[in-house]
Amino acid sequence: MILLPCPHCGKRNSNEFSYLGESAPRPTETGDAKLWRAYLYTKENPAGWTRETWLHSGGCGKAFLAERHSVTNEVRATWLPGRKEPDTTTEAGS
């Protein structure tokens, strides 16, 4: 059971959270099928650091964004929706 750092509650077991997947902006132009289907279906799916949305559904009920390493499951940053994204690009990552 990995721990996920909820920005409100602190580290909690991952089974308290709903995984909402890779963070991808919703296209503003909804008439472009290619664009829209890329938003719906195409995934980066990296083996490394990935930015995704989680909802602490079994806890405080709040959504947050996290930068998690998809191989080690380490989370190096979390932030609330709408807040400035942390700049982690300078840190070592694989």
């Binding site: 919703r26 949305t53 909802l55 959504a63």
Partner: peptide
């Protein structure tokens, strides 16, 4: 309920 919270918290804050 989760679907609604998700929209309210991420897109329509």
């Amino acid at each position: 309920h989760e679907w609604i919270e998700r929209w309210l918290q991420t897109s329509f804050r």
